[in-house]
């Protein structure tokens, strides 16, 4: 047991780093995922993750695999796409999902093109799938800052976001414009987390550590508080199990972490207490009143 679950982290510095890094990501990403799901923006997260790629790629084009340049590029690209697709949805006949899809497909193609202009396939793989086993100190600090900002931000936005999701006209009547401001700040947090996740898990998988634990939590939890707690728990568990499995089998770590989150999702799908499939099969006797 010790060899299986603890030894890799005791023996290897890079495994400890990977663990702490993904734990930070899990801590902030999972609550973001909960809000994305409840606000019916699950695919928005996915689209934004793709949209970040060309920004990071341009940073890469100028500075190679530099943390600062790629982070700045990713943040800028993320905000531009978020605002642009919001504007397109507002001023044209296209709905937000269609306009996001258009932007992210263009972004993805652009990003891959830019990376292949200069780099090797190895670099492309690094950008697409991350490098969780090679986190340096600077990346560490970045992940910690993002996690802290996210938790503080979500605490501040909690009430307006919840109210805007359930009953936007009510929030608008008690505090005009609060809903719009909350939405923009929330999107900023989403971009921030995706950029952080992209260093560890890559642009394509970063969103997995947000959505899968949150979706799993929805199947167990009855209310918002439990859902937030459970989603973080699932994300932490998936990070740990993914790292262990990756170490023991030699399979790439990023995909392994997301697969672990996926396994938790399937278990939740079947056994989830609140709305899992088993519930249909058990057919509990109804109560008297």
């Amino acid at each position: 047991m010790y060899d299986l679950f603890l030894a890799p982290f005791v023996e290897f510095d890079f495994m400890r780093r990977a663990l702490v890094g993904t734990l930070a990501l899990a801590l902030s990403g999972a609550p973001i995922g909960v809000f994305l799901i409840l606000r019916r923006m699950s695919l928005t997260g996915d689209a934004m993750a793709h949209a970040i790629l060309p920004g990071a790629a341009i940073g890469y084009l100028f500075a190679g695999l530099s943390l600062g340049a790629m982070t700045a590029g990713g943040l800028i690209a993320g905000f531009v796409v978020a605002l642009a697709s919001g504007a397109v949805a507002r001023f044209t006949a296209l709905r937000e999902d269609a306009s996001l899809a258009a932007f992210y497909l263009i972004s993805l193609a652009l990003g891959v093109t830019i990376v292949s202009l200069r780099g090797s396939n190895v670099d492309l793989l690094h950008v697409l799938f991350g490098s969780v086993l090679a986190l340096d100190d600077a990346t560490f600090v970045l992940l910690a800052i993002i996690a802290s900002l996210t938790l503080i931000g979500l605490a501040a936005l909690y009430r307006p976001l919840v109210m805007e999701t359930i009953d936007p006209s009510f929030l608008n009547s008690v505090r005009p414009h609060a809903g719009g401001v909350a939405q923009v700040l929330f999107l900023a947090l989403v971009v921030l987390n995706l950029v952080g996740g992209f260093h560890a898990l890559g642009t394509l998988l970063a969103v997995g550590l947000m959505m899968l634990p949150a979706a799993s939590a929805r199947l167990w939890a009855r209310d918002m508080t439990a859902m937030l707690g459970l989603s973080v728990l699932f994300a932490l568990l998936a990070s740990y199990l993914g790292l262990v499995a990756s170490y023991q089998t030699g399979v790439p770590t990023g995909p392994m972490i997301i697969l672990a989150a996926g396994a938790l999702y399937f278990i939740s799908l079947v056994f989830g207490r609140s709305s899992g499939l088993m519930r249909l099969w058990r057919r509990e006797q109804h109560l008297e009143g």
Partner: peptide, 25 residues
């Protein structure tokens, strides 16, 4: 206009009416 699938209790929903006094935090 209300999203009835959102997991929130009756108590919390009614308590929203206190917004002008309780605000963000």
């Amino acid at each position: 206009e209300i999203d009835r699938s959102f997991p929130i209790t009756v108590f919390d929903m009614v308590a929203m009416g206190d917004w002008q006094r309780s605000g963000l935090f």
